[in-house]
Simulated assay, not measured.
Amino acid sequence: MTHPTPLPTAIIGAGLAGLAAALALSAHGLPVTLFDAGTAPGGRLSTHRAGGWRFDHGGQFLTVRDAGFRDVMGELVGDGHAAPWMGHVVRLSADGSVQPHVVERFVGLPGMDGIIRGLIARLPEAARPRFGSRVTAVTGTPGHWHLALADDAQEGPFTRVVIAVPAPLAARLLSLVAPALATRAAQAVMAPCRALMLGYGAAVLPPWDAAFLGGAGAEDRPLSWIAHDGGKPGRDGRAGFIAHAAPAWSERHREDTDDAVITTLLPAFRAATGITAEPAFLALHHWPHALPTAPLSDGYLWDAPLGLGACGDWCLEARAEAAFVSGARLAAAMGA
Rank of each mutant, 00 (worst) to 15 (best):
4 P>G: 03
9 T>W: 11
17 A>M: 12
23 L>W: 08
25 L>H: 08
27 A>L: 05
28 H>Y: 01
28 H>Q: 15
30 L>I: 15
43 G>P: 03
47 T>S: 12
53 W>M: 05
63 T>W: 00
71 D>A: 15
73 M>A: 03
75 E>R: 15
91 R>I: 14
92 L>N: 04
103 V>Y: 09
104 E>V: 08
105 R>F: 07
109 L>A: 05
110 P>I: 08
117 R>Q: 15
119 L>Q: 14
119 L>G: 13
122 R>P: 06
128 R>Q: 13
134 R>L: 14
134 R>F: 07
135 V>T: 06
140 G>P: 02
144 H>T: 03
149 L>C: 14
155 E>N: 07
159 T>S: 15
162 V>S: 03
165 V>I: 15
167 A>F: 00
168 P>S: 07
170 A>K: 07
179 P>Q: 11
190 M>I: 15
193 C>N: 07
195 A>L: 11
199 G>Y: 09
205 L>D: 08
206 P>Q: 10
207 P>G: 01
210 A>Y: 03
214 G>L: 11
217 G>A: 09
223 L>P: 02
226 I>M: 09
232 K>F: 01
233 P>C: 04
237 G>R: 01
242 I>H: 03
246 A>C: 05
254 R>M: 01
262 I>H: 00
262 I>M: 04
263 T>C: 06
267 P>R: 06
268 A>F: 04
278 E>Y: 01
279 P>M: 00
281 F>P: 06
288 P>H: 03
289 H>V: 01
292 P>T: 08
295 P>S: 04
298 D>K: 10
300 Y>G: 13
301 L>V: 06
313 D>T: 02
315 C>N: 14
321 E>P: 07
330 L>P: 07
332 A>S: 10
334 M>P: 02
336 A>K: 13
